[in-house]
Amino acid sequence: MAMTGDPMRGVFQGFDIAAAGLRAEMMRGEITAANIGNMHRTGNVHREPYRRRTVEFAELLDRVDAARDLPGGELAAAGVAVKAIHEDRVTEFPRFRSPGHPDADEDGWVLGSNVDVFQELVDLAAIERSFEANLAAMRTYRTMLQSSLVNMRG
């Protein structure tokens, strides 16, 4: 192993990778929760209703030259990060007639948010699974290091 600089860096890097995964999934969960929380925020042609948001992930590498994918060499893996939060501009706002509604226009039409609650709930279940996978990986890594301390005591 290339022991340059901080000798413990290699050991704790594993935890940082899993932590980055947990942080990213947590962010995705927060955005999904925000979508569900704002799904009833209505609007009209003048004032936009709540627009559904999505999170985009990007791979994180701890060295620039790692992007060129040279065979061999030290692993440059550093986990994942949230690259961007997008607004859904593809799905159209549903329109329903509700005269007397505070957001209703002259003809009584109201625009609803383009959040699909069932899609969000499915996403939330998937996020939970991803989160647990990262957590399990972190736990496995810890067990490995712990057992090596016990086994190599001599």
Partner: peptide, 15 residues
């Protein structure tokens, strides 16, 4: 290998 695997798991939702 374990660090690579953890990286893969962290990136399971990266396009």
């Amino acid at each position: 290998r374990v660090r690579a695997s953890m990286h893969n798991i962290a990136n399971q939702n990266t396009p």
